[in-house]
Design a protein around this nucleic acid. Structure first.
Lengths: 170, 170
DNA sequence: GGTATAGGGCAGTGTTGTTGACTTTCTACG
DNA sequence: CGTAGAAAGTCAACAACACTGCCCTATACC
């Protein structure tokens, strides 16, 4: 029986955080935290005719004004049809402006109007307030770890995009 | 003017992590990481007629066998009607068993069947694999911070539930 | 001029959430 | 004992948001 060789398992202290139980707790933490994370903007959006998808579009247009529809599609990871429905209501309602691309006239470059900027600010301030409070309670070291684990969890392609975005002037 | 007292703002090094830019990066990290976090189980579920809601139900029934419908409702944070649709398909398909409550015969206690346990294992193993890899790459210290920030982000009620769950024997 | 790309649109479908209203079964309390 | 109310289940309608498949126009590039 080779079993006897495992009587003293190789489990250094440092690896105890990889037990299935620890992983399960991490999984549940993600679920509960993400629910809270989206709750505040969702409340604001519920009053208008908008949903979470509108929030995401507005967020990324604000973050990178003038980006093309294709770029936005790539960042959001949804289909053209799905984005288009959301984008059209935002344009019709005067929150987003779609200008013909300068480089390439086939492209459409997306910008927030004043009205769009105002909504973005309202939504993101609600979300930032929660994030700020969580950061403050957890402290700078914890925040570093938080970001490290989240980055490690992303798909490699997404992670590259994300890390490239980090360096934008804001 | 009391304003003059603020000419030298109190911004120690330790608070630089609370800038709006840092917060925005945290927000985007949550978005991208959560998308990756759900991607693996979603692939498995897509083949069957199930969705993410089925996964969540199966997860929490596995974590706390014999829990009542009301408890599950509270943990998931959805309406009775929404859960019921999901739960009924799981029961009809023989993944979940609903037994009359022992204490209170009005209650239904939920258990996974062997088939249900098998699916749960498949789904959670996919999710754990990603979490394990992220944990391993980030290291134990980062994991501690990750959990701290997520807990701080939850609604207080959810956090209590979550922290109580942490102590279950598993 | 022909092919490929960017964008937009239509039609249909599926999952998951919501309200609101109603029923059955059972417990608990006055 | 009788009733108020909790727990569960159900029906109907609706909305948000994702998907596939297909088609069309405008523009770019070779």
């Amino acid at each position: 029986m080779a079993e006897k060789l495992r009587i003293q398992p190789m489990v250094p202290e440092d690896l105890l955080f990889l037990t299935d139980d620890q992983l399960r707790k991490g999984i549940e933490a993600m679920f509960f935290a993400y629910r809270a994370f989206t709750a505040d903007p969702d409340l604001i959006l519920a009053d208008m005719d908008y949903g979470r998808a509108h929030h995401r579009a507005v967020h990324f247009i604000n973050r990178d004004p003038g980006l093309t529809v294709t770029s936005l599609l790539a960042v959001l990871g949804v289909t053209k049809q799905s984005l288009n429905r959301v984008l059209r209501t935002l344009i019709d309602d005067g929150l987003v402006e779609s200008r013909v691309g300068r480089r390439d006239r086939r492209e459409r470059q997306l910008y927030l109007t004043e009205k769009g900027t105002a909504l973005e600010r309202r939504l993101s301030e609600a979300q930032r307030a929660r994030m700020r409070s969580a950061y403050r309670n957890a402290g700078p070291q914890a925040v570093g770890g938080f970001r490290q684990v989240l980055e490690a969890m992303m798909d490699p392609e997404t992670r590259s995009q994300y890390q490239a975005m980090k360096d934008l002037p804001e």
